[in-house]
Design a protein around this nucleic acid. Structure first.
Lengths: 224, 224
DNA sequence: TCAATAGTGTCTGTTAGACATTATGGA
DNA sequence: TCCATAATGTCTAACAGACACTATTGA
């Protein structure tokens, strides 16, 4: 069976952009074209000769003005749940944006803390949830936490990001001991004081190639 | 610009099936239709109303005769690297097949140890590599190792699978101690002797809901 | 001065890895 | 009997988490 169809791209790419803003994980949403208060996940279609990940990076850049420092495939949906573009299939990527990058002026995009996302379809919600799940499951293998922070940060800020990603509180002394043993950060000469307490020293991400032996198997993570 | 095109599915689904066979990880490949000695990754296209993962499960079942016990999205490719089906985009899933399941008679499929894969395009190779990477990175969170084994297995077999997935040797006593502490397996009354040594007791996967506290942050996995 | 946060030192229970030993089968 | 593999007990160094303490700022 043949029929006339416009040669529209039959699939779309959604990009869930995540940042750490004011002590919370936040996702970027764009106001939908019609005037109503509806929000959508930034999306687009690949240009000719552009890879899928390349398209995701471009879409991200158009939204936040800079290229995400990390991006990864997180979900794919087929027909049955139609995309706004009416595409038959959509591929979702998760991108991480460092804190401090600001949206272009007059942007149609807004950062929403993930605990205060606006109402949206279950499919959009599933894409965002899977994006967060992808991030959380990768943070052990990829230095995502450092990507969420600006180039220099305090150790308390780093710990906060880890706590956001892990969804639990960490022990301060243990956190710092483990961090020091891993040679992942190096201190700068700068200090930053904000508000009450003692100023904190700033650090930067500076991993050393010194490979430590990785111990054991983590059966505890397998608990049902 | 409009042009006549046949309404063929514009995308395809590749399914990399992995099993543990004779002490090695193996991937299932299918002989290509033309007589030449070329091998391809099992693939198909979704039927109407079928989700992408549903299609992947069906493709897997058609290939090995049973449904994989675990499946997950592992990669997506756009145009530029064309798929044999001439699809513009292909989505790759990774599936795990338990040992012991045998291929249907007269099957066009063959298990290849991943260290002895036949020559194939760099794109196919990339799909398989990403599938293995997905498996390895998920084994901490999903009981993949148990899925690669038949219902009952010896602890040495289990350890071998972990060593295959991790790509390194584990310490026997530590492995068993951690396994016991995690309440993931239970012993059966059966023993199996093969060849020389003392027979080994058979175990089955039987996770208890007893959630142990998960300690610490694993910075060591973040080493570059 | 008090409150709040940064950063460190010490103690203790737990555990990974090493080593040794016993157990049990086949050759 | 010797050898190979299974299974387990013990020791030790390393480490996570708890606690307490000092340091340094703003109010």
């Amino acid at each position: 069976m043949r029929e006339k169809v416009s040669r529209r791209s039959p699939f779309s790419i959604d990009v869930v952009l995540v940042a750490a803003i004011r002590g919370q994980l936040a996702a970027l949403l764009s106001r939908s074209a019609d005037g109503r208060e509806k929000w959508m996940i930034p999306w687009g279609t690949p240009k000719p000769g552009e890879g899928l990940e390349g398209a995701a990076l471009r879409i991200a850049q158009e939204a936040v003005g800079s290229i995400p420092v990390w991006i990864e495939l997180s979900a794919a949906f087929g027909e049955g749940h139609r995309h706004p573009s009416d595409a038959e299939i959509s591929v979702a990527y998760t991108g991480v944006v460092p804190a401090g990058s600001s949206l272009p002026a007059g942007s149609q995009h807004t950062w929403f803390p993930i605990s205060e996302l606006p109402a949206m379809s279950t499919r959009k919600r599933a894409i965002i949830d899977s994006a967060l799940g992808t991030m959380r499951s990768r943070m052990d293998q990829v230095p995502i936490a450092f990507r969420l922070l600006p180039a220099s940060f305090t150790l308390s800020e780093l710990q906060q990001v880890y706590e956001l990603l892990l969804g639990k509180k960490l022990h301060k002394a243990s956190f710092r001991r483990a961090l020091q043993a891993a040679f992942l950060v190096e201190a700068t000469e700068e200090w930053r004081g904000e508000g009450r307490g003692r100023p904190a020293q700033l650090y930067r991400y500076a991993p050393r190639k010194k490979r430590r032996l990785v111990r054991g198997v983590r059966f505890d993570l397998l608990q049902p």
